[in-house]
Design a protein around this nucleic acid. Structure first.
Lengths: 203, 203
DNA sequence: TCTTATACCGAACGAGCGCTCGGAATTCGA
DNA sequence: TCGAATTCCGAGCGCTCGTTCGGTATAAGA
């Protein structure tokens, strides 16, 4: 485990901030070099700390991975829950969710890349159940939205399961190619994906 | 480097076969545990060889990774080149390519998962240029096909680049969720993807 | 038949790994 | 002001890693 966070109120905020910085830096380095290929000394170099200093903020290298996954999934899941709970129509909900999702992915690009690399561990090790459940809940929220979209007659998928997986695929693949300050904005891209999903490309 | 392959003709075939078996087994283990997380002793256990015996067939653990990537990309690229060189129309070419591609992915499921995990290395390390070039050529073949499809008036994409990346995303994501003997066949799935791409889902 | 290429073994190597811990320097807060 | 809490250091721990190499058993082929 990491050292207990400071009890002195004046230091608590700083501790939390530094810990978050460490997580962000680790996400970047893991994304570039790979989680397993990154040594603790790579991390000390990237953070400017030494081994001891680093372990003041984290419990282990693996905990770092868990924190990265949580920092990625939790806020997205929260937003998704909110969006689905509004009384907007399914298509508008989906558009909003997709824009939020794609924007989230551009912000948490490194976290996504780490998540994609380590997916095999997260999906199979019992110990990663919490992250797996977050991923699954998001997927179910999305599937529910597609179902309501079909029910409303906005679209008829040949196979809703295929459409769902295709959508997950195209969005999750985005960090692999999207350049941060490139030609495409997040909303633009999200709308592009939505058009494909709903068959809005002109024949 | 691996030991030189046997010069005695009677043994050459057996050597090649065993080497291929080693590569297949390694692909499966890497897919499950991750390349870096897999130790050589994991590999010896999975192959039934010991360290010395294993290194009779491979030069290094990293060479194994290279062989896996090549076994994945080369035959697919060959088929893609053939398909694009036929005089079928662009839509039929795309359908054939997609079916071939998805089927290939279901066969080389483990290789794909390894490739996805180690993508960051392959994309950035100079030493992986050959694999990177294969990936790029395939992508360009695909893009050319989409371009001719638009030119033929079969479809008009809002943004062809987005459509290309979306297609790559959905197909490359497939091994993450498709169960080998599940409900969906490869051709069925490929056609599902094509329908999405061309906007053939009924409104 | 007999030499030699081949197949495989498994102990052992150096290197690098993740992580610990005693302590120095600094800062908080009573 | 001064003890306690906190921040960070960095040498070094035990361990596992990928790889090597001297060796034995077997099979090819002249």
């Amino acid at each position: 485990m990491a050292a207990a966070p400071p009890t002195r109120p004046a230091l608590r905020a700083r501790y939390d901030k530094r810990q978050l910085e460490v997580i962000e830096v680790a996400a970047r380095v893991f994304a570039e070099r790979g989680y397993h290929a990154t040594s603790v000394s790579d991390l000390t170099e990237a953070t400017g700390l030494t081994a001891g200093g680093l372990y003041h903020y984290i419990g282990s290298k693996e905990e770092l991975l868990a924190r990265i996954c949580d920092a990625l999934m939790q806020p997205l899941l929260d937003r998704a829950r909110e969006i689905v709970a509004t009384d907007a129509g399914p298509e508008e909900q989906l558009r909003t969710l997709l824009r939020t999702w794609v924007e989230h992915i551009t912000i948490y690009r490194h976290h996504m890349l780490v998540f994609a690399q380590e997916r095999h561990v997260i999906e199979h090790e019992p110990h990663w159940r919490a992250v797996r459940r977050q991923r699954k809940e998001f997927q179910e929220l999305l599937d529910g939205l597609l179902e309501r979209l079909e029910a409303a007659g906005e679209v008829r998928f040949g196979d809703r399961g295929v459409a769902l997986m295709a959508l997950l695929g195209m969005v999750n693949y985005t960090p692999q190619w999207l350049r941060p300050r490139g030609r495409l904005g997040a909303d633009e891209l999200a709308d592009g994906y939505l058009d494909l999903l709903l068959g809005r490309q002109a024949a």
